[in-house]
Simulated scan of single mutants.
Amino acid sequence: MSTFAARMAFPAMMLAAVAANAGAFELTSTDMANGQPLTSRQEYQGFGCSGDNLSPQLSWSGAPAGTKAFAVFAYDPDAPTGSGWWHWQVVNIPAGVSSLATGAGDPARQLMPAGAVQRNNDYGQPGFGGACPPQGQGVHRYQFTVYALASTLELPENASAALTGYMVKANALGSATLEALYQRP
């Protein structure tokens, strides 16, 4: 093989390796399914909604090499705010953890692994805040994403959701997403 051909083949091999590694990182849940509706268990309690406000069980596998921590986000890009709605942001989940139990997003339940930090959601409280789209808005998408991080994050105590998202994405080695749906009856 000529030097030129070898140089041209190397980027293609790297892209194939990255694609193979990216496909290996997977997020699953026993409480929800990709493209399917959430239940009232994941509906918020307040703002006119009367659900159980339970964060769903999440499990992940195939994290990229070098993962030092994880972050989990739940985000509604369809919220009529101009910037979506952050339902959950958890950072610094230890690298040895590969799942969160149903209800782990409720700080009072103390189900989060040691070291994990739940940021304020857009309801203004730490932890998970369930789905509660405005009536008449139709179906909203709820994107649950786990990020594999190259390092734990040092964030100010009052970091905004935008700053938290920026720092997570700047340190992400990979991510996996499940997108569920919800519409108020």
Rank of each mutant, 00 (worst) to 15 (best):
A108H: 09
K169W: 07
F70D: 06
M8L: 14
F10Q: 15
N21T: 11
S83N: 14
A19N: 13
G124H: 06
G105N: 05
F25M: 12
L149H: 03
D31K: 02
C49L: 05
C132T: 03
P113T: 05
S55T: 04
Y44R: 07
R109G: 06
A180T: 08
Q118G: 13
A159R: 03
S40M: 12
V91K: 07
G129W: 02
N92Y: 04
V90H: 03
G138M: 02
P156R: 03
Q42H: 02
Q42F: 01
L153G: 05
F73I: 12
A104G: 07
G138Y: 02
K169C: 09
V139Y: 02
T39F: 05
Q135V: 08
A20Q: 12
G82K: 11
R7K: 11
T152E: 15
Y75D: 11
W88K: 09
A71K: 00
G115F: 06
A148Y: 09
L54R: 01
G130R: 00
T102H: 09
F70S: 06
G96Q: 14
Q42R: 00
F10L: 15
E179S: 14
R109I: 01
G23P: 03
Q89L: 14
A116R: 02
A74P: 00
V117S: 09
A159Y: 08
A131P: 01
G23V: 00
A148N: 11
V146T: 09
A33D: 14
Q183H: 02
T3D: 14
R7V: 06
A16Q: 12
F25T: 09
Q135W: 06
T102A: 14
V91Q: 06
A150I: 02
D78H: 04
K68I: 03
N21W: 04
D106S: 10
N171T: 11
C132D: 13
L15W: 11
N120G: 01
F4A: 14
Q36C: 03
S2M: 03
N121T: 05
G23I: 00
R109S: 13
S2Y: 02
T164V: 15
V117N: 08
Q143M: 12
F25R: 09
D76S: 08
L153A: 06
F47A: 15
S99R: 11
S175Q: 15
N158F: 05
A162L: 12
A95W: 08
P133A: 07
Y182W: 13
T30K: 14
S83F: 12
M32T: 07
P94N: 12
A63Y: 02
G105K: 01
L178M: 13
D106Y: 00
Q135E: 15
Q137W: 10
